[in-house]
Structure formats: structure tokens, C-alpha cells
Design a protein around this nucleic acid. Structure first.
Length: 572
RNA sequence: GGCUAGGUAGCUCAGCUGGUUAGAGCACGUGACUCAUAAUCACGGGGUCGGGGGUUCGAGUCCCCCCCUCGCCA
């Protein structure tokens, strides 16, 4: 039994995530976590909300709420949606937790001790009416280059020229519109990533088993232009982790907070501590996952994320860990995803385009989405959601191939032999062939799941479902029963056992349906079928079972057309 | 403009270091079956592997040029 630490990129607190966000990290991470648990491994599966930063402050202001209240509410919303999608986090924490405050301050203190923090004075635009410094992109004005009147402080979107906020003509705050701005001097902390560049590169180079998508992005940042740059890790904001050096105050940094991208990945660790707190466990309970000097040396740490998050996880966060000089666990494997597009364009949170998690659950149960999203996960390239494809996949794979199989087996068995496992006959050559085929396919499936080949694993699972139908068609118990009832009983006994095995194999993808199957078979034995021959004889003769409700219903053309129209426009 | 990844049957995609008649699922056609959610199973039609050169006994698979899509960056 191995110990596996799994983290999903933490979703930003601001708003409900769309299906593209879901399939890019949380959902495949859940698939892997469920698979590892099913195989009997010890798993710690962590996710949280990423709560700090300007967008959260602005969203709270727009909602007319204190930012603390806004974040607490949105955290609960996201937590409920995660539960709705059956995401099996061991803990769903918050980057605003006290645990994360302490740990973030701790890391900053260690980095300072090791000479990796530099204090830099810089000039930034301060909005007197907003009583805050403005990040460059929250300053609007007229572009001096092309005259575009809505240019941002960092770049003109019209002529793409890079700008400095002070270049803008008629600059104003995009928060309040106020032109009452002035340039003020402010001091910030920089993490000297350059000093860690060679160590980071050596570490990346040692990861020969990582996907090219991951390492190429990291190397680009290490080598492009002047190479890896030092990075500001503080901001002049109110909402965030106050800048401290461990437990001590940081002279000159009063009233400032750490930058959201500094504290967010640290939340992976802090969240595990939150988990321990929530379960009244001692410090050692979470430290054994993260501290290699306290039991984590045998932990395999896997991160899931969209490709846009790769630089932060391959460079920034490792720089924090390495720079601390303490024996924290570094990531062992990064599984990154491309983007899911929506009906010919992109999913867009800001434009409200596509299907969002709450909307998805309001029209169909989680399993339907989980199956489609995972079996079409954007692994090798971007992939595309279309309603036609969704309808066809759900109807064919879930309703016809799997759902109907469960239905035909349980109904036939009940009508001919009653609602117990029939005792007659023996398994013959057909059964032996099926069991042998099943054994090699399950082994292939497990290998793909272990390798996190999500699409291929889904295809293999589907193929495993199909051989159940093939077997039934070939053995034809509905014909055999007329002349040789004992033989028919053996066939049915095998088919019923097969459904229990399918429940185990399918649970990582479609947990709700899998549990319905297991429950219909009146069993609670989720042991992975390493010995398939034993697993196929698990349900004893006379064991009672029931006919479940249809596991999946079909999506009608009318529904598909309705949804297509309903979700074509902008979310309101 | 630079960089990444792609462009393979109507659709969604597999095809590791080049090697027998290019594969899967869906869709389509024919047949079988009737236990089942008009489900299932078998068989079949269909592709000059974006275009053009080149290397090789042999290229979807390597090299060069061009075209197109997507993303990142400047």
C-alpha cells in the first residue's frame, strides 16, 4: 500500500466555475483519488478556495458585502457544488484560514533568514478617493500611442503597446472612475528566484517522466529572455495575509499583505493542517504528508491543474519550498490539462459563456457530466464540448451500454429465478474465456488509471462494459433457459457478479451509479478485483438482490435543443 | 512577429523510438436476437493520414518549405 498526496489547483473564490475549470483540475484529481483509494492506497486529497487579491475585494464591493462575508458565502457555494459533483476531497479548505496565515508568514520568515528576500522601493499609482493603491490593470486612460480611450495601465488592448500607468493620458481609477490619483512611493518584498534558478532547473531536468506540456512551459520561463525573474510577493491591499516574518512584525511592511500567488499554493499544506484540525488530529497527522523528516519521505505527491497554472507550480511554489531550507515535500508528478472549448468558442467566466457548475447540476445528475468530461478530457490538446456529442455519449455509453446491461440482467434473472443468486450449473468454457478477458482488461484499465491517461482509461472501461453485453448475447440465457435451466442459472449467476465488479471498476468515473449497482446487488464489498476469478464468484448462491431503477435516462432531442438555446447566450 | 501544441474516415479521437492490406467509438448499411431503457450482438461500406519537396529498401511516423486552427508571449 502506497501513500498518495493529491492536490487540485485551487479555484478562485470569485464566482461559480464552469465545466472547463472543473475538467482541468478538480474532476481528474477526484478520478485519480478515487482510483487510488479503490486500490487500497492511503490517500490525502486536498482542495480549497483561493480567496485573496483584488478581484475578490472588488466582487465583494459590488455585492455590497464585507470581503470576509463575501468569501465565506462563496466558499460555501463552491463547497456545495463540489459535493454535488461528488468530488471526494478529504478537505476543502480556505486560503484565508489562520493556518495559511501562519504558514505563509512562516515561509516568508524562513526565506528572509536565508537571504532570499529583497526589499524594493517602487512608485505606484494611489487612488485617493478609493484609498488604495491601484494595480496597473485597474487604471484606465487614453493610450498615448493610438488614442484608444479605454487603455489599461499595463497595456493598450487596441494597439497592444506595453504601457506604464503614468503614460496614460487622463488616467482614472477603473474601480471608482476617480481621476484623483497620485504616484506614491511604496516598499515591497521580492523573492529572489534568480538565486534559485539553477536548483530549479536541475530539479526540473530530473523530472524525465513529466509530460512535455509541463516541462516545456517551465523551461520557457527558466530560459526565455533574461531567464527567471525575481518576483514581488507583497501588495498594498487590506484583504490577505498580513506581511510578517514568522511570528514577528516586519518593520516597514505594516499594513501590507502577501501577494495572492505567494500564499495560494502554501494553502495546499495549510489545508492539510485544516483537515487535521477539523478531525481533532495532532500536528503529526498532517506533517506526515508534508515533512520528509516527519514521515512524508514515502509519499508520492501528484498535482492536477490547467496549463495556465503550470509556471506557478513548477517554479514559484518550488522556489518557496526550496528557499525555506526546510524538508517540505516537493511535487513528484504534475498532470496538466489543456482547455475545454464550448461550441466553437471558449468557455468564459467573465462573459458568462458556456455551462457553469450550478447550471449543469440543475439539468442532469453529476455522473452524466463526469462521464462526458472525463472521457473527453483535454489531455493532448484542447477539446470541445458540443451538446450533440454530449447527448450521443451519454445515451450510448451510459444508458445503452451500461445502464441497459444492468437492467436486462437483473430483470431477466428476477423473472426466471426470483430475486436471489441462482445456484444451478457450473461455469464453463464461455465463462472461463470471459473471466480471462476481463482479467487482462482490468489490468490494462488499472495501468491507464495509474498513469492518469484519463481518456484512454475511460475507453477501456467502456470496452469492459461492452464485453458484458457480448457475453450475454453469445450465451443467450433467454434461449438456454427453455432447454437447460441449470446452464441458464450459471450464466445469470456470472452476469450478476459481473455487475458488482463493474460497480467497483466504474466508481471513480460515475460514483452515484456505481453505488446504485452495488446496492442493488445488496453488497458493500468494494475490494478491487485483483483476483478476478474470485471476484466473479463473490456473491453466494441464494444471496438476495433487487432490480434497480434505470441507472441513466436518455437525453431527448427536445432537451438537447432546449439546452443548446438556453446556454448559447450570456449567463444572467 | 516569437514560442507551444495540433491539422488522420461525416463527427470525436488512437497511432511509442519509421516496417505486413492505417485503427477505435459514434453516425451510416445489412443480418442475428428478443432478456433489456426501440436496447444488444455480428458483418460491411467509407480515409491519396493539411499541401509540396526530400532522406530511406520502406514514412501518417524523420528533414526542409508553405497553408490553416488553438493557446501563450512580446
Amino acid at each position: 500500500m502506497a501513500r498518495i498526496l493529491i492536490t487540485s489547483a485551487i479555484p478562485y473564490i470569485n464566482g461559480i466555475k464552469h465545466l472547463g475549470n472543473l475538467v482541468g483540475s478538480q474532476l481528474p484529481a477526484d478520478l485519480y483519488a478515487r482510483f487510488c483509494r479503490a486500490q487500497g492506497h492511503e490517500v490525502m486529497f486536498i482542495c480549497a478556495t483561493d480567496e485573496h487579491g483584488t478581484p475578490a475585494e472588488l466582487a465583494a464591493a459590488k455585492a455590497g458585502k464585507p470581503v470576509e462575508d463575501y468569501c465565506a458565502e462563496m466558499h460555501q457555494v463552491q463547497k456545495d457544488l463540489a459535493a454535488g459533483f461528488r468530488l471526494s476531497f478529504d478537505h476543502f479548505g480556505r486560503s484565508s484560514s489562520q493556518r495559511n496565515h501562519k504558514l505563509t508568514q512562516h515561509f516568508a520568515g524562513k526565506l528572509a533568514e536565508n537571504g532570499l528576500i529583497e526589499e524594493v522601493s517602487e512608485k505606484q499609482v494611489f487612488s485617493i478617493d478609493d484609498n488604495r493603491f491601484l494595480p496597473d490593470r485597474y487604471i484606465t486612460g487614453t493610450c498615448p500611442n493610438c488614442g484608444y480611450t479605454a487603455a489599461r495601465g499595463d497595456q493598450c488592448e487596441n494597439c497592444t503597446k506595453q504601457l506604464d500607468p503614468t503614460d496614460l493620458i487622463d488616467a482614472r481609477s477603473s474601480i471608482s472612475g476617480s481621476k484623483n490619483l497620485e504616484v506614491r512611493e511604496t516598499k515591497h518584498l521580492y523573492l529572489k528566484q534568480r538565486a534559485l534558478r539553477d536548483r530549479l532547473e536541475a530539479w526540473i531536468d530530473s523530472k524525465t517522466d513529466w509530460p512535455i506540456l509541463t516541462t516545456s512551459i517551465a523551461k520557457k520561463w527558466l530560459n526565455d529572455g533574461d531567464g527567471l525573474q525575481d518576483r514581488g510577493i507583497t501588495r498594498d491591499l487590506h484583504w490577505g495575509v498580513p506581511v510578517k516574518k514568522g511570528d514577528a512584525d516586519w518593520p516597514g511592511m505594516e499594513g501590507k499583505v502577501f501577494y495572492v500567488w505567494f500564499d495560494a499554493p502554501i494553502e495546499y499544506i495549510a489545508c492539510t493542517a485544516e483537515w487535521a484540525d477539523a478531525h481533532a488530529k495532532p500536528e503529526s497527522a498532517w506533517e506526515r504528508w508534508w515533512r520528509t523528516d516527519k514521515g512524508a519521505s514515502d509519499v508520492r505527491y501528484v498535482q492536477f491543474m490547467g496549463k495556465d497554472n503550470v509556471p506557478f507550480h513548477t517554479l514559484s511554489f518550488p522556489a518557496t519550498i526550496m528557499g525555506s531550507g526546510e524538508p517540505w515535500k516537493l511535487v513528484d508528478y504534475i498532470k496538466s490539462f489543456n482547455y475545454l472549448n464550448y461550441d466553437g468558442g471558449q468557455f468564459s467566466t467573465s462573459q458568462g459563456r458556456g455551462v457553469f457548475m450550478d447550471q449543469a447540476l440543475s439539468i442532469l445528475p453529476a455522473d452524466y457530466w463526469r462521464w462526458w468530461l472525463l472521457s473527453h478530457a483535454p489531455e493532448s490538446s484542447d477539446s470541445e464540448f458540443t451538446w450533440e456529442n454530449f447527448q450521443v455519449s451519454v445515451n450510448k455509453d451510459l444508458a445503452d451500454v451500461l445502464g441497459n446491461l444492468v437492467s436486462r440482467v437483473t430483470k431477466f434473472a428476477t423473472s426466471k429465478f426470483g430475486a436471489t443468486i441462482p445456484p444451478g450449473g457450473e461455469f464453463g468454457p464461455m465463462e472461463a474465456a470471459l473471466i480471462a478477458d476481463l482479467g487482462s482488461r482490468i489490468s490494462a484499465y488499472a495501468d491507464l488509471m495509474h498513469a492518469m491517461e484519463v481518456r484512454k482509461a475511460a475507453a477501456e472501461l467502456r470496452a469492459i462494459w461492452v464485453i458484458g453485453n457480448e457475453y450475454l448475447q453469445a450465451s443467450a440465457p433467454w434461449t438456454v433457459v427453455k432447454t437447460d435451466p441449470n446452464r441458464a442459472e450459471a450464466i445469470v449467476r456470472l452476469a450478476l457478479n459481473l455487475i458488482r465488479v463493474y460497480a467497483i471498476l466504474s466508481r471513480p468515473f460515475i460514483p452515484t451509479a456505481a453505488e446504485a449497482m452495488m446496492s442493488a446487488l445488496n453488497s458493500d464489498d468494494w475490494t478491487w478485483p485483483d483476483d478476478i476469478s474470485v471476484a466473479m464468484r463473490k456473491l453466494p448462491e441464494g444471496h438476495a438482490f433487487s432490480v434497480p431503477e434505470n441507472l441513466f435516462r436518455k437525453i431527448t432531442d427536445e432537451e438537447r435543443l432546449d439546452w443548446q438555446t438556453r446556454f448559447s447566450g450570456v449567463r444572467t
